[in-house]
Write a protein that binds this DNA or RNA. Structure first.
Lengths: 152, 152
DNA sequence: GTCCAGTTGTTGAAATGTGAACTGAATTGA
DNA sequence: TCAATTCAGTTCACATTTCAACAACTGGAC
């Protein structure tokens, strides 16, 4: 028998905020994806390029990359395969660990990122940064950091 | 020829916040989905049940429902079909508009929602509400409302 | 009435995502 | 040394989502 505990429902206000959050997130994602589409990218692929561009030799172990872009390993395998066939990245064996695979951004991948970045940054501004009061934006940052913080 | 405008890059701080946002959202979604799984639901289906439960006669036009849960019409068609085969909702023709279809929540659907709700609310608390400073949570609400507000 | 542009919802195929099983390699520890 | 375990990445089977095409209907304009 499961112990029944009276649920701690959300207040009307908390519920309103929670729903705004769901709506807002969906809205932001839709806009970002829409504005990346002309470049043939979605947000997931864009983030992969960003993380690769920030690395030594534009190269990262698959599992490391997977964690940074919050994709499952399986999903990353597929995503990278697609990007490979588009010529944006390449796979190379990892010399130090023969289980390992490095994803490396090609020059074409880097050029695409450089092309897409200004438009993408504008999207982020129009969808979020420029719409929100700066103090609230700071608070949003603190809130999301608290959410991401590992505590359990 | 496209006019080149110097992009307004994000400041380091803005970028940090933006990345926290992406991380936080992903984290929240993962947790909510994981904790709904034991009920055989994902967040999309759960939201459908919630919106139906808040309506007269637990019934809503497909297009109306689609908008409220932010799913494309096509996606909602598929989702509702699945839920129908699970016995959670039913489709009935709309009497006033012969193009229309109403989705109605079944008693089983309602029972499942009532079952799942306490756990789901706990998830929302653990993943977000209880983790965040109340003032920051308020600010998050304002920010997300600003994001969702239709201005263009 | 008749036209017709727009709306509603569905379909089916292709693209993408998921989770479990699997392969081969590294590591552990007796 | 070498079996057992863990790890990295892929693969497979399947579920879900997307996109374009479509059929049925509506509500004016004329």
């Amino acid at each position: 028998m499961t112990t029944q505990v009276e649920p701690r429902w959300l207040s009307a206000e908390q519920q309103r905020i929670w729903r705004s959050f769901l709506n807002g997130v969906a809205r932001i994602n839709d806009r970002l994806d829409a504005e990346l589409r002309p470049f043939g990218l979605d947000l997931g692929e864009y983030e992969i390029l960003v993380h690769l561009s920030e690395c030594e030799r534009h190269m990262l172990r698959m599992s490391d990359l997977a964690e940074r872009v919050r994709q499952s390993r399986s999903r990353l395998t597929h995503t990278i395969s697609r990007m490979e066939s588009k010529g944006l990245v390449q796979r190379v064996a990892c010399p130090s660990d023969r289980r390992g695979v490095n994803a490396i951004m090609t020059p074409a991948g880097y050029r695409l990122l450089v092309d897409a970045a200004p438009s993408h940054v504008e999207s982020v501004r129009r969808a979020l940064v420029d719409r929100v009061d700066p103090d609230d934006f700071e608070a949003l940052g603190r809130a999301m950091e608290a959410v991401s913080r590992v505590t359990d």
